[in-house]
Simulated assay, not measured.
Amino acid sequence: MRSNPGGGNAIEKVLAVLEALPAHERVTDIAAATGLPKSTVHRILQSLVDRQFALPTGNGSYVGGPRILSLAGQVMGRHNPAQHAETALRELCEDTGCTVHFALLDADQAVYAAKLEGDKPYQMPSRIGRGIRLHCTGIGKAILAELPPASVDAIVERTGLEARTPRTVTEPEALRRQLDEVRSRGWAYDDEENEPGILCIAAAVRGHTGAVIGGISVATITLDPWRSPVERLAARVRRAAAEVSAALGAPSDAGSGPGSGPGADPVSGS
């Protein structure tokens, strides 16, 4: 909600009413939420009704109209999550010097939607459009940790727990314990579990409904140690994941926790 819309121009007042409409139906409640006079709210709502952005339901109540749904459908039809994540991913890459990945959940796997190479003399074997397993990757475990246990069990039953490397967790109970740890601290770690010699730190990304839709990660090789302690890097990755989630319209309280907000420690580039 915009602060002090009552002191803004007409556009600010209209936007404030539109933003309040999903959570408040009555003119009195919308006025209280926006700080606008009831007469102003009523006048704006009448204009929104005329343009089908709102619909009256009787007894002074209103809901979103078909024009909102139509516009939302058009926007989502052309929605490119990677484009919305670009700024946060670029800053994460610059701050850490690591390769940065953004992957989206696709049925029982995740698919790389964006990749930025770090300032290293080597490149990661990953590529945009490539699918990755969930049980043995940082991004995959960050996603699984946010899914209901029954959904995780169903995915494991369908896909199995392939041993990608000698470090891959292949027992369901061991995976559950790992996911409990991920859920508790808010980030996941891939310690050569998907590719020999590659380490990843990852955090989940949420969409406009608040549900997990993917994750981001920083990656390096075992021969090139992390520039900063893992906990500091993890805090930076969580902050970037929160920024990407916000850019995708996730509710502000979705997936909040230590290390995910603007006040998280920056990562030293030295």
Rank of each mutant, 00 (worst) to 15 (best):
T137E: 02
M124T: 09
H101W: 01
G131K: 15
A23G: 14
M1H: 09
G257M: 05
V17E: 08
L147Q: 13
T168I: 05
A114Q: 04
T165D: 11
Q109V: 06
A154M: 10
G215R: 01
A174H: 06
V267C: 05
Q74P: 02
D265L: 01
A242Q: 09
R158T: 06
F102C: 13
A85V: 09
K115E: 01
L199K: 05
A240E: 05
G35L: 10
C93I: 00
E181C: 06
L147R: 09
V14H: 02
R167N: 12
H79V: 03
R133M: 14
A31I: 01
A240F: 02
I221C: 04
L248Y: 09
A150P: 04
R206N: 11
T137N: 03
G197M: 02
T137H: 03
L233K: 03
P22D: 13
Y122C: 15
T57S: 11
N80M: 15
G259P: 00
C136F: 09
D95G: 00
D119E: 14
A31G: 07
A33R: 07
E86L: 13
G214H: 10
A246K: 14
I198K: 02
G197F: 04
L45S: 01
P149T: 08
R26L: 10
E171W: 05
T159R: 11
R238C: 01
G60I: 12
V63P: 05
C136H: 12
P262N: 04
T220G: 05
Y122F: 11
R227W: 13
A234W: 00
S61A: 12
L233C: 11
V156M: 13
G263T: 00
D253F: 10
G263E: 01
A16V: 10
G58F: 15
A264M: 09
A247K: 07
P225Q: 05
P121G: 14
D29T: 05
G35W: 09
P5E: 02
G257N: 10
R67Y: 13
L15N: 11
S3L: 06
P166T: 15
L69K: 08
G160R: 09
V111A: 07
G140F: 02
N194F: 09
A202K: 01
V244T: 12
A16H: 10
G261R: 03
G97V: 09
L55A: 14
P172L: 01
A145H: 01
L89P: 00
P22H: 15
L92K: 02
R167A: 05
I216E: 06
A188D: 00
A234C: 15
G60K: 10
C98M: 14
N194K: 07
L179S: 05
N80H: 09
R158F: 05
I216A: 03
W226L: 13
V27N: 04
G259F: 01
H79L: 07
V152Y: 03
A219C: 14
G35H: 08
E192M: 05
R167T: 11
A154N: 10
L89A: 04
P229F: 07
R130V: 13
L36K: 08
L134C: 07
R43I: 04
A54H: 00
A23K: 10
L15V: 11
L223P: 03
S47Q: 15
V27P: 07
D50M: 12
D106Y: 12
G118A: 08
S47F: 14
I213P: 01
P229C: 07
G215I: 06
A82I: 04
I198T: 04
A240Q: 02
K141L: 11
A163V: 07
